[in-house]
C-alpha cells in the first residue's frame, strides 16, 4: 500500500498541463480527485512517473447555463453538483446520482471530469452522460474537439482520449421541463460500486411515455445506453408487462463480470429490476 516513486507537477493552465502530458507521454497521468488513481498507485497497479495535478489549473471548475445547455467544468466536484441550484433545477438526476457516490469525504474531492474520463465501468456518471446525451470537450496538443459521451467509451479504462489530451468540460442539453428522472443503484454498502444501476430520463404525455432514455452502470465493460428497452416503453403507460419487456430488452445487452457482488445471472437480473424501478419512479415524477 505504498506507491512507487513519482514526480509531482501542478500546472496553472490547461496549456501547461497539456504540455506536461505531451512531454512525459505514457509516463504521465493527470490527477483529478484521485479516488481511482491513488489507490491503484498504492497497490502499484499504476506506476506513473509523473502526476499532473489539475487542481491548480484555472477555469476547470464551475457550472454555467449556456442557452439550453448546462456546461460543467471537469474539476467540478460531486459536492459542488449537489450544492448547485442550476443542477437542482435543470439536471436533478445528477444530484440523485452524486448523492449515491461513496460518502461526503469522497464527494468533496471526487470530480465529475475524473468520474467520466477514467473509463471505469463502475463509475456512476458515465451512464448518466449517455442518458442525457452529453458531449465532452477534449483539449490536447492538436487543439480542442468535442466527443459525444456515446462515442467516448471503448472498453474498460479505454476511452477516446488521445495521448496528451485532457477532458476539460462536459456539456449537457437541459432535459425538457417537467421531465421525469430516476437513478436506481443497488450496492452492497456505502462506498461500493453498483452491483447494477439504471438511469432513466423520460417525458410523459397523456399518461403515456413520450420520450425515454435509459442508461446502465457496471453491467458491461462500458456504460450502456439501453435503446431497445427505451423504445419498448414509448407510447405505453408502463404497465407490468411493458416493464418486464423493457427489463428483458435491457438485460439482453448486459454482460457484467461475476464478482463478489454476485454471479452474472444475478447482476443481470437485478439490472433488469433497476430498470423497472427507475422507469416507474421517473414516470411518477414527470409532469
Amino acid at each position: 500500500m505504498i506507491p512507487g516513486t513519482f514526480s509531482y507537477h501542478r500546472p496553472a493552465s490547461v496549456a501547461e498541463a497539456i504540455n506536461l502530458l505531451s512531454t512525459f507521454g505514457e509516463e504521465a497521468r493527470p490527477l483529478a480527485g484521485g479516488h481511482s488513481l491513488i489507490p491503484m498507485m498504492k497497490l502499484r497497479l499504476a506506476t506513473p512517473g509523473h502526476l499532473i495535478d489539475l487542481h491548480g489549473v484555472a477555469g476547470l471548475t464551475g457550472i454555467r447555463r449556456d442557452d439550453d445547455k448546462i456546461v460543467i467544468g471537469a474539476m467540478t466536484t460531486q459536492q459542488q453538483l449537489l450544492a448547485s441550484n442550476e443542477i437542482r433545477t435543470a439536471l436533478p438526476i445528477l444530484q440523485e446520482a452524486a448523492a449515491l457516490i461513496a460518502d461526503p469525504q469522497v464527494r468533496y474531492r471526487g470530480t465529475l471530469g475524473g468520474n467520466v474520463a477514467n473509463g471505469d465501468p463502475g463509475n456512476d456518471m458515465p451512464a448518466l452522460m449517455l442518458t442525457l446525451g452529453a458531449t465532452y470537450r477534449l483539449e490536447g496538443p492538436n487543439g480542442a474537439r468535442n466527443v459525444a459521451a456515446g462515442e467516448f467509451y471503448q472498453g474498460a479504462y479505454f476511452t477516446a482520449l488521445e495521448p496528451g489530451e485532457i477532458l476539460t468540460s462536459i456539456t449537457i442539453p437541459a432535459p425538457a421541463a417537467g421531465h421525469g428522472y430516476a437513478y436506481e443503484k443497488l450496492k452492497r454498502k456505502v462506498g461500493d460500486y453498483a452491483t447494477a444501476a439504471a438511469a432513466v430520463v423520460l417525458t410523459m404525455a397523456d399518461g403515456k411515455v413520450a420520450s425515454c432514455a435509459i442508461g446502465l452502470t457496471n453491467l458491461h465493460e462500458t456504460p450502456l445506453l439501453a435503446t431497445d428497452a427505451a423504445n419498448v416503453v414509448i407510447s405505453t403507460g408502463l404497465d407490468a408487462a411493458t416493464l418486464k419487456q423493457a427489463a428483458a430488452a435491457a438485460e439482453a445487452i448486459m454482460s457484467p463480470a461475476a464478482d463478489a457482488r454476485g454471479p452474472v445471472e444475478y447482476r443481470k437480473h437485478v439490472g433488469g429490476v433497476m430498470v423497472m424501478r427507475a422507469l416507474q419512479r421517473a414516470a411518477g415524477r414527470a409532469r
Binding site: 460518502d103 454498502k189 456505502v190 462506498g191 463478489a260
Partner: peptide, 16 residues
Amino acid sequence: VVTGSFMDFFMPTAVE
C-alpha cells in the same frame, strides 16, 4: 483470496 480488501470484505458503516 477474493475478499482481500474493504471493498469486498463487508465492513458495515453507520449507514448499514
